[in-house]
Design a protein around this nucleic acid. Structure first.
Lengths: 271, 271
DNA sequence: GTCAATTTGTTTGTTTATGATCGATTTTGA
DNA sequence: TCAAAATCGATCATAAACAAACAAATTGAC
């Protein structure tokens, strides 16, 4: 086998999964650890991956494109997974959906890779990268100015793109939700974009884990009644769920399945 | 068997598979390794394939899993690095530049992370991700439809965004350049975008390693005179450089500086 | 036919890729 | 905290692939 072919295979594997161990690669490629290490070093030089003890992490599949998000995603990650999984069921093949950049929505995007005839519009480069190789998903991006803190696009180009489309569904992360004040967010530009997404979509799906409830943030987005479906986790206070349902919001409570991990094949996240 | 016939067979084989080993070709064509190597060298010069130790990788395989530009990034990486480094010097702090998605340009983007007051516009999500953490660089993205084969944005949104801006400099990867035919590319949408970038920029900088010269591709972009500065590597045939300069193009030849490699360095001047 | 130009095969020495070995380092588990 | 296990980086040996020079075969022109 050509060395180039081998490295291509490693890229392939890393496009399907975020991490890979060196010993797995030895087995998969039929070469010794020394060769695998050399390949990984070369690919790291190319910026394809980042090596870590025992294997490597993909740089192209974008979770580690955003350090701030990654640190965030560790907290409540079980809940986020459950919410993302539940919300993914609400997206049907053949639909056109907007995915707004946020950790939970990104989690959801990963689950859409195998879909067919799905059209995804997003303002998040991370989500674009995540879906780049899924052959069954058409990806559009609004473009715009990149916000360095939140890592998605806003500004005139993004707004105009949003003003020109109509979507079956929009999926939004929510950073603060309060029954009386409604939905709010820390960033003015983000609020503006969220408002426009809300206007463009027939069905508005909001994702919020239990820590977001009863909080208010700087920039107002809209009343809770603007939300059609809200997906949250089982840790949410029932009074919020009741209040939302009274306001006409369909609430989906995602159950965290398998609380204890079995023979976990997780990569170590220590630094 | 005629040499021409043999090389055609190699092209045929490579249209069906992404890689081929030299020994397989010896067996398939009934010639010695020396002849195969000569054929591969000729086909590489034509831009049909890229040689790698033990065989060659097709450059035409867009049917394949990954965009070829990503696959090829490691071959010629020395030249690409040199070109990217030289081109980065042409970008000055305070300017507004367009970076068009291609491996070499991506390489360049990595070198811009430390800049100050730089504004980068791009149609490549990869470049967006590359520059996301650089505090001194403002990033804008055209948005648009994501091309699954080449991995950048095109389409109406991208075109309109480009029609509304004026840039100090545009940096474009070139996939095929011929003195008489001009610049061309394999993809119609890409050609369209390249034309618009050319129109929007005051100074047009093209990056092309030596393998791109003397080749033609499907979609016409424009005459070589549209290029203001062309950066290439030292492996380019002087006749092309002379021709470009006669056409009014400023040509920069990037020298591959010998890096950490050992002392045994010999200069075998290619042709 | 001869002769020159081209192409192909062969030889030779060099370079590259790979696997094995050996300490050094890191991780893991007690 | 320590010790065992795994992984790493560096180095070396070997075999394959390489470039270059040369020789042999082929081709085409005269």
């Amino acid at each position: 086998m050509l060395a180039e072919e081998r490295r291509f295979r490693i890229r392939e594997i890393l496009s399907g999964q975020r991490t890979i161990t060196a010993s797995d690669l030895c087995a998969a490629l039929g070469v010794t650890a020394a060769t695998v290490r050399r390949d990984l070093a070369a690919l790291e030089q190319d910026g394809v991956l980042v090596r870590s003890h025992g294997g490597a992490v993909s740089r192209m599949s974008s979770t580690n494109f955003q350090p701030s998000y990654e640190t965030l995603s560790h907290s409540h990650s079980n809940e986020k997974h459950a919410i993302a999984r539940a919300a993914a069921h609400l997206v049907l093949d053949g639909e056109t959906v907007f995915l707004e950049g946020s950790t939970t929505v990104f989690e959801l995007a990963r689950g859409l890779n195998q879909r067919n005839r799905l059209t995804v519009v997003t303002n998040s480069p991370t989500i674009v990268c995540q879906l780049q190789r899924s052959s069954g998903v058409t990806v559009l991006c609004t473009g715009g100015d990149l916000q360095k803190d939140t890592f998605y696009f806003s500004g005139e180009w993004a707004q105009r793109a949003l003003s020109e489309i109509r979507l079956d569904k929009a999926i939004l992360g929510v950073s603060a939700i309060d029954l009386s004040y409604g939905v709010s967010t820390a960033n003015h530009a983000e609020a503006q974009i969220k408002k426009m997404i809300t206007r463009a979509a027939k069905t508005r799906i909001a994702l919020a884990d239990h820590s977001k409830f009863g909080t208010q943030s700087f920039a107002y987005v809209g009343p809770v009644a603007d939300i059609d479906v809200l997906v949250t986790d089982s840790g949410t206070d029932p009074k919020y769920i009741k209040g939302l349902r009274e306001a006409g919001v369909e609430v989906v409570v995602a159950e965290c399945q398998e609380t204890q991990k079995g023979p976990a094949k997780r990569t170590h996240s220590h630094k």
